[in-house]
Design a protein around this nucleic acid. Sequence first.
DNA 1: CGCCAGGTTGATTTCGCTCAAGCAATGTGG
DNA 2: CCACATTGCTTGAGCGAAATCAACCTGGCG
Lengths: 243, 243
Amino acid sequence: MSSQHASGSRPTCFACQLRERNEWCVLSEHEVALLSRCQTSRTYRPGEAIYMMGDACRGVYCIAAGTIGVRKLDAAGNSVLLHLAYPGDTLGYRAFLANEEHRTSAEALGSSTVCLIERPALTRLLAMNPALGLQFLRRATDDLHRAEEKILQTTTLSNRTRLIHLLLVLLERHGQVRADGERSMKLPLSRGDMASIIGTRHETVSRIVARLEAEGIAHFSGRKVHVPQIEALIDELVPPPAN
Amino acid sequence: MSSQHASGSRPTCFACQLRERNEWCVLSEHEVALLSRCQTSRTYRPGEAIYMMGDACRGVYCIAAGTIGVRKLDAAGNSVLLHLAYPGDTLGYRAFLANEEHRTSAEALGSSTVCLIERPALTRLLAMNPALGLQFLRRATDDLHRAEEKILQTTTLSNRTRLIHLLLVLLERHGQVRADGERSMKLPLSRGDMASIIGTRHETVSRIVARLEAEGIAHFSGRKVHVPQIEALIDELVPPPAN
DNA sequence: CGCCAGGTTGATTTCGCTCAAGCAATGTGG
DNA sequence: CCACATTGCTTGAGCGAAATCAACCTGGCG
């Protein structure tokens, strides 16, 4: 519990391709050197926690590889999956900026590699490069936009539509496209987690899955999913003709 | 349509009490002078739009008085009320920072006064004072936190519980407390808007209201609400004993 | 005066939750 | 290596909450 991140190797940030495409892209060479020096990388096994709701904030986490689930607890104490995070994404910046405890938990869904950038280093970087703050600001507004879209979804769409929406998003990230246009993927989450991310019960997800199967729209076998024609899914997102 | 804000008076920002308590609190005297010079204030009648989804972003809006509703359109084209904003709140910073069209609409619910700070001035202010950017960052993370809590609510609580939650929030803002502890308020929104903010139909809100009335928990007469004991409402938020 | 948006109420149906049982895969200790 | 617990998933039955459809009311306003 003392030094989770001490055991990790320390690959350089210079080599990190993802850096070009996220908030760190505004750093100068000198600043990347500082970042690289103050960062530790660690690999997490599936199900392992990166941080827990209520933990003190040690810094921010930058995902190098894998899939991370961000969770919260509802009023009854059930774990609710809020969203998924992927390589290049930064986690825990909220607790860092507000200087408070984590309000969410983050957990590796598959085997994942995550870099921790410790508080003091990040504080220094933010002070030396104001553009970095604006990058985080951009990240926050993007996240806010995603959250608002999700609110819209959960308040206006049916469970079936939301599940289909989720499947499409997952296909985007995890799907393989075959030559004939058919798609397949291995789901990164359990049925229970799929239920919680769309705000329903796992039994309901099971039933919708069974119905999609019966309709030939998608084929499920454990966590394997096969989608013959993605248009069949997309069509369901379009609201009825609305006459 | 050309110069909505030109007609407004121009009270000075120096006199604005709210400034002490929001993002502008980090500005120097000199910077406040610039802010004051580049800002125009305008009063909106109930129902009047401040900006619409899809509009180009003219700058950010700072609420001086009144109650503002922030809306989005769902997939079927219905207006959904996302949240309410109050004096001291800043609107439209997202479109400004991302340099894109507004993704939400803002509309005065009651008669309201709102100040527009135009793009160029704000750009200059952000450049001269990095702390201002961090203030906006804080605002964004706060909004993000609120949005996540709302997702949690809508996915885990019943319509009744969500309506009660809404009533409590509104009481906080709009309620009067009498000497004997009883509370009352004039609702700032229609039943339809209450329905859309908690993600249900207006008929359902009507029915829940009728039930609360029958149970003696709250009394409704048009937009007037009277709550004999607020504890009766609060108790409903607590999840069952959970044995 | 009559129209209209907003609100209420009723009847009906649909959807999704709860409870419950059964099953497969995985893990654990003897 | 087997008995057994555990966890995740599926399926069924019944029920309850809320959506839908529809009629009607009300107050405000041209």
